[in-house]
Each structure stands twice: as C-alpha cells, then as structure tokens.
C-alpha cells in the first residue's frame, strides 16, 4: 500500500509542480498583457491627440480656404466693377460726342446759311441767330455736366463756398432757359419772395443744378404747359420747387431717378436728348452743400423737384 500512496503523492507533487508552473506562466502572461494594455492605452491617447490636432488643422484649412475664396470673390467683384465703369465711361464718351454733334450741326447750319445769304432777310437773321445762340447754350450745358462728372469721378467735387445771392443764381439759370422754353412754347413762371436770398455756397455749381432741373422740366413739358418755379425761404434754409406738367415718373423708377446715367422710360420712349447725368450731378452738388434734393411725381400729371439748401453749409464742406 505504501507504494500506491507514494505513487499518488508523487503524482500530486508532479501535478502541483505543473500547476505552479502553469500559474507562473499565466502570471507572466498576465503581466505581459497588462504591459501591452498600458502600451495600447498610451497609443490610443496618442491617436486621440493626433486626431484632435488633425481636426484643428482641418478647421484652420477650412477657414483659410473660406478667406481666400472670399478674397477671390471680392477681387472678381472689383474687376467686374472696373470693367463696368470702363464701359460706362466709353458709353459716356460716345454719348457726349453724339450729343455735341447735334447742337453743333444746328450752329454750323444756321451760321452757314447766314453767311451764304447777302444780306439775309431780317426775320431769317433773327431766327437763325437765335437757333445758333440756343444751341451754344446747349453745348455749354452739356460740357458743364460732363466736366462736373469727371471732377466728381476724380473726387474733386470740392465746392468753393462763398457768399452768394440765390435769387441771382436762380435768375441766371431761368434766363438761360428762356430761349428753349420759348421755342417749345412752354412758359416759365417764377414765384419768389422779394429781395435777395443770401446763402453760402458755390454759385456756378448751384446754377448748374437749377439749369439741369429747368432743362428737364422744359424738355418734358407738352406745348403750352407751364413750368413753375416756387421759392420758399426762412432764416435757416431756402427751398426751390421746380414743377412741370410732363409725363411724370413711374413709381418703380422713382428710387433710381438720381442714379448716374439713369434715363427714365419716358425719356427713352420719347427720345428726349440727354445723358442721364444731370440729376445725378445735381444730387451730388446739393448734398455737398449740406442740402437735400427730392422729387414727387404722378404719371400723367407731372413732377415736382425740390431742392433745400441750408443758408450755411455744415462744416466741413465736402
């Protein structure tokens, strides 16, 4: 029996030793696995950090791209704007050149006829000298507008303010218009308070504003209709209304009436000569004086343009 017991004990011993070995191996494997786990965790942490960094980079790139796109778009817009301005300038030059040829044709024609006749009959002389004179005024107005526009473009619309009498300025503008008004059988009525209207401003610029308003009023008035100029004045400001009985301005065009080169549909359909500059330039000049210009109009009834000028422009003058 002792042999069997001994064999059993030996077997147990062997089994114990084997289990111990296995335990030690398992422990060692566990140690290894734990080491790997720690390593993997570290790697994961690294990856996470890299991912955050990448996301950040992506965001930065996206922002940069958006910026660049924005800049490209804005540059494209600027380029289109420059091209458009260029085109407008070419069109303006072509229009001005064409507009000048018409009155020049009349002046040349009238004077040639008078020179060829020896002597011209008195009524012929009066009529044709009148035609030449009116068209000289027309050329001067056109060139004045054009020069004003180029000065505005160059940012040189500095007004030279001095003391003036607005009544005189208005009278001069009305006086220039009488010839054209008579030819078109349009009456020019001026209602103004008596006496001078002292104001600080640029008389030439202001005269061109009123000339433009009167020119439009007369050009668009039907024969026999009156153009009425009404002046109101108080201690702070002078207001001038120019009213015509022309076709009026369609409501959808009202906001655009003072835009550069804008010509309303009545002007285009009636082929009324013009460059679309007069009202724009007038607005710039009036606002440079610290004033306001506006219009009320009804289609089929006519329009009233109103200019309000402060007696003294607010400092600094534009």
């Amino acid at each position: 029996m002792t042999d069997t017991l001994q064999t059993l004990v030996q077997a147990f011993d062997r089994m114990a030793a084997a289990y111990e070995l296995m335990a030690r191996r398992l422990a060692s494997e566990i140690e290894q696995l734990e080491a790997e786990r720690t390593g993997l965790r570290a790697q994961l942490a690294d990856f996470s950090r890299h991912q955050v960094a990448l996301l950040q980079s992506n965001q930065d790139l996206a922002r940069l791209t958006a910026d660049l796109s924005g800049q490209v778009a804005s540059l494209q817009h600027r380029a289109e704007e420059v091209t458009r301005q260029d085109q407008l300038k070419s069109e303006l030059l072509a229009t001005v050149s064409h507009e000048l040829r018409t009155p020049l044709t009349s002046i040349k024609g009238a004077l040639s006829v008078l020179l060829a006749e020896d002597p011209p009959a008195p009524e012929v002389r009066t009529e044709f000298l009148g035609i030449a004179h009116q068209n000289v005024e027309r050329v001067m107005r056109l060139i004045g507008n054009f020069l004003n526009l180029t000065r505005i473009e160059a940012g040189q619309i500095g007004i030279t303010p001095r003391s003036l009498d607005l009544a005189e300025v208005l009278a001069a503008a009305v006086g220039r218009m009488r010839g054209l008004a008579a030819e078109r059988r349009v009456s020019l009525d001026v209602e103004t308070p008596p006496g001078p209207l002292p104001l600080t401003g640029d008389p030439e610029m202001l005269e061109s504003v009123f000339s433009n308003l009167l020119d439009n009023a007369v050009k668009f008035s039907p024969e026999g209709a009156p153009v009425i100029v009404r002046v109101e004045a108080d201690v702070r400001a002078v207001t001038v209304h120019v009213r015509d009985r022309g076709p009026g301005i369609p409501p959808e065009e009202m906001p655009r009436v003072f835009e550069r080169f804008f010509r309303g549909s009545p002007a285009v359909t009636r082929r009324v000569p013009g460059t679309g500059l007069g009202l724009h330039i007038s607005k710039v000049i009036v606002e440079a004086h610290g004033g306001r210009i506006g219009v009320e109009s009804r289609v089929g009834e006519g329009s009233t343009f109103t200019v309000t000028l402060p007696r003294v422009p607010p400092q600094p003058a534009a």
Binding site: T102, P103, S106, G109, A110, V113, I131, Q134, N135, P273
Partner: peptide, 13 residues
C-alpha cells in the same frame, strides 16, 4: 428729322 432746329435749317436750305 426729329431735332426741331435741324429740321428747320434743313427745310430752309
């Protein structure tokens, strides 16, 4: 011709 002054002049001539 639509320009009144030119119309007048050319008619006369």
């Amino acid at each position: 011709e639509d320009e009144p002054d030119i119309l007048r002049l050319v008619t006369y001539i």
